[in-house]
Design a binder for these strands. Structure first.
Lengths: 345, 345
DNA sequence: TTGAAAGCGTTACCAT
DNA sequence: ATGGTAACGCTTTCAA
């Protein structure tokens, strides 16, 4: 049977040229695919004559050849991708900075960080979706993945799984980071300052509960049995929502508020001040995350600081774990939440 | 020759089990790989008996089988990955929100958004690195990629390339977004308010110049030939840096400042107020990005708002472009920069 | 209803 | 020094 070479498929008019492959480069340069591979990867083991190298390079240039990462990974049996699921809510400044540092540090170690939109799925289902990419390591920034999920990832070739979560997860390098600690610290601080009727801001908005729920819970826990009360205060990140909350403030009878984080604290504090509520005389306010803006407010904002690991440290941990996956997860102290007492409480 | 099956490589002690493949599932279930594929992908065209389906599912479960995305993409010849290079600097709140929306909207359209750390490389070199992933679409959030880069991506199978940049890029759906407009608007506004000696804050820090340079340049441009002066004000995002700048303020002799964005404006405004400089009487301040916090400052912060496309709109644009790559890039008006005049100017 | 086989793009091994 | 070939894991067409 005669095969007509390169008959264009009779579908679309622009006839989308197929993506050039290394075989195309080889054909154009008049060499074999192996030679193309050697030249383009600067393989030291094999010597290729200079003229040949040149021909191959020119051919690749001419065709606009770009190697196919998936094919390469398939062949190699591994990749240098470090996977980082994206958060369920827009990231705050603290986290953005952290991700940026982490990414930069890993890039210097020749890894590629991929933030992957793992929408909808949760827990060990999500782990399966991540495992499809066969990352060499995974950093899970929220709780929710369990030992099963970790096992799936490891069976799929992940040499390191690092979790940031309250409880250590079997099989993972568990960096213990409990947002409930933030709530606990804030509430304990307010209680120690003599406050007894404490509001806790709970941001509205999909995905926010991942962080707000533990912060609320921690506050409740710290105050249980003390006789102090905790009042949940839903609040959207808008002037209107804050004004509405401030308008019904006197009816709530609160003498303190833990405002979820510094940004919400600023929002609420302004609304309260507008309606004549004095801070900290009438109500003590505590934020969290120790953002720059907290120091700029008047009164200066008390806040709870979390000792996040630096991006560089975490990158180096990942690298060590990848190089030696057999090593037991390094134990470490939970990241503490420290109250930074300023003027608002 | 007799081949000893599954001889473990005599290397490491924990003998890392190889990752289970669909062949392993097939073997365990006593069927062929094709059947496994049919069952696991719910192929409608072929009917598989219920008992077989069950056996396959159980085998997959037991082995912890997860399909290999790279292999699948290789075989399919395409993917649903939308690539988004990460910014060279930590993202601000405006951008974080945008990315989150964009990702959510694309997920609903069954795309997978991947943020890819494209560190170091720039322009068309970066494009080559992105092309290795064979994304179906690419959203380039910074200028720097040229027609060459777009061509590389398209030749590599990208059916849509969307750029957010000042000048339209040949071959791409170019959303025209010029940060110089922000600088122009701010400067023109300050000039119209009678200010003539105008400072422009330039954030320090790697990667910031991508946005700060055009904003500065736009300010210069708007004032050239008017007799007004532009003074460059390097500023790190810290209280100390702001205090240092405020300390030498009177020597600068400025009557207005465009503070890069609302966050820097807040930082500088506070430092100025601390040293007794009155806003807006002594110095007019304009921020940018129209963040919530600008409305919370006193005096309320004037700002320049950029009409970013919503994540949903952009997602739908990407989807349309992917479905019909032949269509000419949809023309559109450049996104305007609008001055929101409040009290600080 | 199920199985065999080809092929996606790449690279490593083994001939030449 | 270079080229043929097999194999990575998966899907799909064709044949039984």
């Amino acid at each position: 049977m005669v095969q007509i070479p390169n008959t264009p498929a009779p579908t679309k008019s622009p006839a989308p040229r197929p993506v050039p492959t290394s075989a195309d480069v080889a054909r154009l340069a008049g060499v074999s695919r192996a030679t193309v591979s050697y030249v383009l990867n600067n393989a030291g083991a094999v010597r290729i004559s200079e003229p040949t190298r040149l021909r191959v390079r020119q051919a690749a240039e001419e065709l606009g050849y770009v190697p196919h990462a998936a094919a390469r990974a398939l062949r190699a049996g591994h990749s240098r991708v470090v996977l980082m699921p994206t958060l369920p809510a827009p990231a705050g400044p603290l986290y953005s900075q952290f991700v940026h540092d982490f990414q930069g540090a890993l890039a210097r170690l020749e890894y590629t960080v991929v933030q992957y939109g793992a929408t909808g799925l949760c827990g060990d289902d999500a782990a399966r979706a991540w495992a499809e990419l066969r990352p060499v390591a995974v950093l899970v920034p929220t709780p929710g993945i369990g030992p099963e999920g970790v096992a799936v990832l490891k069976r799929s070739g992940a040499r390191a799984v690092v979790t940031l979560s309250p409880a250590p997860v079997e099989g993972a390098h568990a960096l213990r980071l409990d947002h409930a600690d933030v709530g606990r610290s804030a509430a304990a601080h307010l209680y120690a300052r003599g406050r007894r009727r404490i509001g806790v801001v709970v941001p509205e908005g999909r995905g926010m509960e991942v962080f707000s729920a533990p912060r609320l819970h921690g506050s409740r826990e710290a105050l249980s049995g003390t006789g102090a009360t905790v009042t949940e205060l839903p609040l959207a990140y808008s002037e209107e929502s804050a004004a509405a909350l401030a308008a019904r403030w006197s009816g709530l009878g609160l003498d303190a508020v833990f405002a979820y984080n510094d940004e919400y604290a600023m929002l609420l504090m302004r609304a309260l001040q507008e309606t004549g509520v004095r801070v900290p005389e009438d109500v003590a306010v505590v934020g969290a995350d120790d953002l720059v803006l907290g120091r700029l407010l008047r009164p200066r904002l008390s806040t709870v600081r979390i000792a996040l690991p630096s991006g560089r440290e975490l990158a180096s941990l990942v690298d060590r774990a990848v190089r030696n996956p057999a090593a037991a997860p390094e134990p470490h102290e939970p990241f503490g939440a420290t109250v930074v007492h300023r003027e608002s409480s």
